[in-house]
Amino acid sequence: MALLEVNDLRTYFHTREGVVKAVDGVSFKVEAGETVGIVGESGSGKSVTCYSLLQLIPQPPGRIEGGTAKFGDLDLLSLGESEIRKVRGKRIGLIFQDPMTSLNPYLKISTQLMEPLLIHGKISKKEALERAIAELDAVGIPEPEKRIHSYPHEFSGGMRQRVMIAMALITRPEILIADEPTTALDVTIQRQVLDLIKSRQEELGTAVIFITHDLAVVSEVCDQVNVMYAGRFVERADVKTLFSSPRHAYTRALQRSIPALQSRGGKLYTIPGLPPNLAQGIEGCAFAPRCPEHEGMPEHSAVRPALTELEPGHWVQDCPACLAVKLTA
């Protein structure tokens, strides 16, 4: 049985402009120890998906409208506040994009690193400090017994993200949710942080849900990849298949728009238009307005296409047009 099994998750925001269906029927599984990626543009609903699992959506305006998230014998979506607290930060850890804003500037690293241990377990302060130092050491902070008494501003951006990783993993969670953990960092520091997440994951056997907009990062760290668009998954496959034979027009367009893969001089490929406004109901294929259509192509699906399994393990939204589009260089 999968470690986490999310089924038909729907999270809506009730705003003055209407109901924003930020996550509209998302299902996925996370097996123990594997890395599942969720890729998409800003506003596609990838963060809301993960925050829903931990009930971190501000309610109101947000509301989890339906679905289940089976985690062992628990359904994360229907847990009460006191029960979800036992999961949040203990069995499921979280790291955020911006380590500058997610660490408390007033508190020493030691206080912040020991906090999860003191809250979630019966442990003395002395023991907690020892474990916190060991954890800092494990994420590659030099002189951890000295540095642990520093404040966040005394660390560089990359070091702060290391501290965040230590904080998230110190309780030995079964799942780590990493929400754009390297987006705010330099490429060289990004490389170090990605390597660190990978090595800690291998040492501890933690499963990781990795949220990012960067397909190149996905290809380096993930086993399974879900491509998200307008609140739904448009394609899911193992990382090799997704990059060698992507099927959905959106996945292919995303891949083509990576600057690193394009040659100099010519115009960079971009996806025309903008993601749809989720406050206005979407009918039919959500990608249709931006799809690079050409002659002799079938029509876009008139109802919102369902995710169907093309080949074992390779799921695609079943829109005839999006599957048929030719994207020539």
Binding site: V187, R191, L194, A216, S219, F243, L261
Partner: peptide
């Protein structure tokens, strides 16, 4: 710097 660029593989 070059080796740090994430690669599609």
């Amino acid at each position: 710097l070059l080796s740090a660029i994430p690669q599609i593989r």
